Amino acid sequence: MMAILWLLSLSLPTLGAHVLISCAYKSLCQLSLLSGNDVVLQCDHPRALWYFSSILEEDTLLLSSMPNIKKLPGGGLQLTNPQPSQTGLYSCQDNDNALVVEYEIDFQDVTNLHITHKDLGQKPLQNETLDLGGRVLMFTHWEPWQDCNRCGEPGERKRLGYCYIQEEPLEKPLPCRLYLGQEKVESRLMQPELQVESCLVPCNPIKEINQPYFIFDSYQLSKLTNSMWLTCPLASIYR
């Protein structure tokens, strides 16, 4: 007998599947992101030229034909399923080679994601002090809690945390791999975190009405199938 699996998918514009990252004009923004989750780096110049410098190599590459990287018509750079090996400096320049904006990104490995549930008493990773030619603090930098996944009934919400290093209390902390470069450090904190907690929020009728419409798909699974990997093309851990 064939089992039928119903899948629910959102109907959204293509860009809706990506998180848009922006930075001020002629500025350098340093940040951490998770590997495996699509992003778009904003650069408001229609003839933008994108260059990439890896933390593992000294050469600067013109980004034109990499399989998972695409330059968008407005000048932005779309990274599909970015990997930790793509950690480095992304520089957007105009056609006169003048700097428009730069992003230095640490793509932290989602396959090593440390997950805890606050209501189950599970604890996130603890800060560590390391000697790297001087005393530095390695810690998890937490993003704000995301929205509750349900309204009017018990649900859950999550927040992401990234590995950061700080030299002094007043110094600006940096994502771990951007600080360390090619230096190898053995620490449990060298991984991103995901924390979950219970939530209960009232429904907002206006917000619910403005949601995109849905499309149903059906897939037939044979009883001989032991396992199957299902991918939601518009899913993102950032939402």
Rank of each mutant, 00 (worst) to 15 (best):
W142E: 06
P144C: 00
P144M: 05
Q146F: 09
Q146K: 14
Q146R: 12
D147M: 14
D147Q: 11
C148R: 06
C148F: 10
N149L: 08
R150Q: 14
R150Y: 08
R150I: 10
C151E: 13
G152E: 05
E153Y: 14
E153L: 13
G155I: 07
K158W: 15
R159S: 06
L160F: 07
G161C: 14
G161W: 13
G161D: 14
Y162V: 07
Y162A: 03
Y162K: 10
Y164H: 04
I165F: 03
E167M: 10
E167L: 12
E167V: 12
E168I: 11
E168Y: 13
K172Y: 07
K172Q: 10
P173R: 07
L174S: 09
L174R: 08
P175Q: 00
C176H: 14
G181S: 03
Q182I: 09
E183N: 10
K184G: 00
K184A: 02
V185H: 04
V185I: 13
S187T: 04
S187M: 08
S187Y: 06
S187I: 03
P192R: 03
E193P: 00
L194M: 12
L194K: 01
Q195T: 09
Q195M: 10
Q195H: 02
V196P: 05
V196A: 11
V196M: 02
E197T: 11
S198Y: 04
S198K: 01
C199D: 04
C199I: 01
L200C: 03
V201G: 01
P202F: 05
N204F: 07
P205M: 01
P205K: 00
I209L: 15
I209Q: 15
N210K: 11
N210V: 12
P212C: 12
P212N: 14
I215V: 11
F216W: 12
F216P: 10
D217A: 04
Y219M: 05
Y219V: 07
Q220G: 04
S222A: 02
S222R: 02
K223P: 04
K223M: 07
K223I: 03
S227C: 04
S227D: 06
S227V: 05
L230E: 01
L230C: 03
L230I: 14
P233N: 00
P233R: 06
